[in-house]
């Protein structure tokens, strides 16, 4: 095998390999979407975040405007503090409400933002004042059964207390 032919093939191979990696990164993954765009951070406190995961999307009117960057527990208030990494193109008013929602009954958990009417915008590092915690399905069912039981005692002989 001539040296130049061999080099040519190796070159083609390496180029194809890197093209595949770029394809995976851009087309299969979401490297292009948010990672490199300018961003700012805001915080939100929740009583309960339910099944919220890191990197979960932050949506406003169904459009992804940011991602969950970190989740920690405030040791004093015992509230969950969620840091959101927001796309700089989207600004939200100070009285925005953040709620933890689920797409569909069992779908992914995300944070929904409902913009308010305030003219002042959330700055980098600001904290969202109004939040609505996750609806925990088990609690909801428990609540429902409990309500049922208290309103109609005759039918709850087999139900848990």
């Amino acid at each position: 095998m001539k040296r130049t032919t061999l080099d040519l093939w190796v070159g083609i191979f390496v180029t194809m390999g890197f093209a595949a990696i770029v394809f995976l990164a851009l087309k299969v993954g979401n490297l292009a979407s948010l990672e490199t765009r300018p961003s700012y951070r805001i915080e939100a406190e929740f009583d309960n975040i339910g099944g919220l995961k890191l990197r979960a999307p932050v949506k406003a009117a169904g459009v992804i405007v940011g991602r969950v960057e970190s989740i920690r527990l405030d040791p004093k208030t015992y509230e969950a503090v969620v840091t959101l990494r927001m796309d700089k193109d989207y600004q939200f008013s100070k009285d925005t409400i953040a709620s933890i929602l689920t797409s569909g009954l069992l779908g992914e958990v995300y944070i929904g933002l409902d913009a308010g009417g305030d003219t002042a915008m959330l700055a980098d590092g600001a904290r969202i004042a109004k939040t609505q915690s996750a609806i925990v399905l088990e609690k909801l069912i428990g609540q429902f059964l409990f309500d049922k039981a208290s309103s109609d005692p005759a039918s709850t002989s087999g139900a848990p207390k």
Partner: peptide
Amino acid sequence: WGNMQASIDFWPDITNG
């Protein structure tokens, strides 16, 4: 493609691969 991109991240999914 949209769902794929929404839930596969370059970091860590692709880099780990």
